[in-house]
Amino acid sequence: MHILHLDSAVTGEESISRKLTADIVAKLKTDNPAATVTYRDLNEGVPAIDTDWYKAVRLAPENPTAEQQKLVATSDAYLKEVQDADVLVIGSPIYNFTLSAQLKNWIDQIARAGISFRYTEAGPEGLLKGKRAIIAYSAAGTPIGSEVDFASDYLRHMLGFLGITDVTFVAADRLAMDRDAGLARAQEAVSALAA
C-alpha cells in the first residue's frame, strides 16, 4: 500500500486536520506495516491555474517555452503522486464554509482532461480508479453535511469525477461549540477505519 498524505491547513502545529491526517496515516501503517508514504504540505504553495497554465498544460504546445515546461512539470508531479497512491489521506480544514485555497488549487492542478478524467458518449469517466480517499475534515463552526458545508460534497464529487469513489470522512466539526466532543468523534472515526 502506498499512501499520499496531504495537509493544507494554515495553522501549523495548532491544526486539528494535520493531527487527524497524522493519526489516520499512523493507523493505516499500523494495519499495513509495509505501507509507504509520500507527504506533501499544500500550505507550502500550490500554484493557482491561470492563463499561462491553460496555454501550457491544456493547450500543450508542440514547442513549449521553458516557463511552460515548468508549469507542465509541476502539474504532472502533483498528478503522478495521485496516480502512484493506493490511498489518499487529505487534510481539509474548513475556512469560510469551504475548503482551503491550497486544496482547491491542488484539485485544479490534477483535474486534467484525458489524464485524470475523460469525456465519453456516456458522459465523464474518472481515470484514477481503484483508489481510496480519507478526508480529515476540521471545522470550528461548520457541521459536516450541513447546508453551510460547501466542502464535503464538493470534495466527494470531485474525487468521484476523477474516479475515486471510495471516500470516507473523519470529521472534527463544531469545535467552537464543543471541542472535546468534536475531537472525540473524530478519534472514534479514526479507530474505526478499516485497513
Rank of each mutant, 00 (worst) to 15 (best):
K19V: 09
L20M: 00
S92C: 15
T98W: 02
D76Q: 15
I90R: 06
S116C: 12
D84C: 11
A56D: 03
T51D: 12
A181N: 14
A133Q: 12
A171F: 01
G145S: 10
M1Q: 11
P47C: 04
I134F: 02
R118P: 08
G160I: 10
A48F: 12
L159C: 04
L79R: 15
D7H: 09
D52H: 12
A85R: 05
A60I: 01
D180C: 05
S8P: 00
L127P: 07
R156Y: 00
I107R: 11
S138W: 02
E147L: 11
V190M: 11
P47I: 12
L128K: 06
A113K: 14
R18Y: 10
H5F: 02
G160Y: 03
P61D: 03
Y137K: 07
N43G: 11
A77W: 10
V87I: 15
A56G: 02
H5D: 10
A186P: 00
S191N: 15
A186S: 00
K80M: 13
S100H: 05
A60F: 12
E81V: 01
E125M: 12
A22M: 09
L183C: 02
T30W: 06
Y137H: 12
R40M: 08
Q102T: 01
S116A: 12
I144K: 03
L79G: 06
V37M: 00
Y54M: 14
A113M: 13
I164W: 02
Y78E: 12
K70H: 13
